[in-house]
Nucleic acid binder design. Structure first.
Lengths: 181, 181
DNA sequence: TATGGTATATATCGTGACGATATATATGGA
DNA sequence: TCCATATATATCGTCACGATATATACCATA
């Protein structure tokens, strides 16, 4: 799933600027699909424009920078549908947190506790935010599904970490004892 | 977490070749942290060698290509410890599957069912594999923790999808009805 | 028997993603 | 007043990723 296709996807939900596409990948349901930055979005939109998969209208705003609103063309809409028909790629994760947990035995117990507490705080904040979003009765079925999916995963993560953190802290103590003895 | 640091991490568990590092990120507990390919590993190892963070020994094998076994230097081990002290970056996900679910209303019910069934098959296979790995009583605490963490997440995903897939299939029916009427 | 797929093993190359940085203005809080 | 945040676009260098090349051995299947 390249950035161009992701932009086409957001634009099916309505016209948007590059800045608004970025926000959709931060707050909205797209935020649970993946993150993308400006360094990917603006070149992608420029290329979509060259390929006539989107059109632009420039707006001059007072007190704000100019805004370029992009709209899907019918060719762009068709290309998205083609992309959805292609084989689904496996999910990809990248967890800096898990990498650190892999080396719990090289960390001091206090450093490890801080890492786990930080992670729990992030998870609990995400869970709280998603529980509020779950109250929206007028959201489309796909958004409700994705929010619930993310909520289920965050809860599973938080529950597992709370139930099993003692195992890691125990392991992190051992090398220190060995050094002390 | 760049590829160089990831390679240093695997090498703390014992000397390894680039090929063996790749395998560690496919099968072992590192597989749940992130994926990396040869195109990232070999340049990273070459750079680590130049910076004297690892050393190499080349082995000639019979019936197999030559093998380059890399070992951590003390500078390499210290650099890994420094990296573990740096602030933990937030997890990153990239789900081609969720992207498709976001556009369930643009898919035929049969195409949607196939996508969900495929996803369930992948999840159930992963769950079955992890349940076997959970029986290993001699694995280090960190590996047991990570395997259990991955298992908890996969189970949460599978359970949620089974319980809520009907919502999406219902939504995918609607446009077809609209076209038919 | 031949063919094709899988495993072992290293390496490169082009495309594209990512993070940092630049530019400009307005608002809100310390 | 000063700094951070929000709005808005854009570029640039570095790094990651996927595809491809090369070479051999082994196993299954047609």
């Amino acid at each position: 799933m390249d950035t161009k296709t992701l932009c086409l996807g957001v634009l099916t939900q309505g016209d948007a600027s590059g800045y608004e596409i970025k926000k959709a990948f931060e707050d909205g349901p797209f935020g649970h699909i993946q993150e993308i930055g400006f360094g990917s979005i603006y070149p992608a939109l420029a290329q979509l424009l060259r390929e006539e998969l989107v059109t632009v209208t420039q707006y001059t705003q007072e007190g704000r920078p100019d805004k370029k609103i992009y709209s899907l063309t019918s060719a762009g809409r068709l290309l998205l549908l083609d992309a959805l028909d292609e084989p689904t790629e496996p999910d990809k994760v990248r967890s800096d947190f898990l990498f650190r947990m892999m080396f719990a035995h090289l960390l001091s117990p206090s450093a490890l506790e801080v890492m786990i507490d930080d992670r729990m705080a992030v998870l609990n904040a995400a869970i709280a935010g998603l529980q509020q979003a779950a109250d929206d009765q007028f959201a489309p079925a796909s958004e409700t599904f994705i929010n619930g999916y993310a909520l289920a995963i965050y809860r599973a993560m938080a529950d597992y970490i709370e139930d099993n953190r003692y195992q890691l802290v125990g392991a992190s103590l051992m090398p220190e004892r060995a050094v002390a003895e």
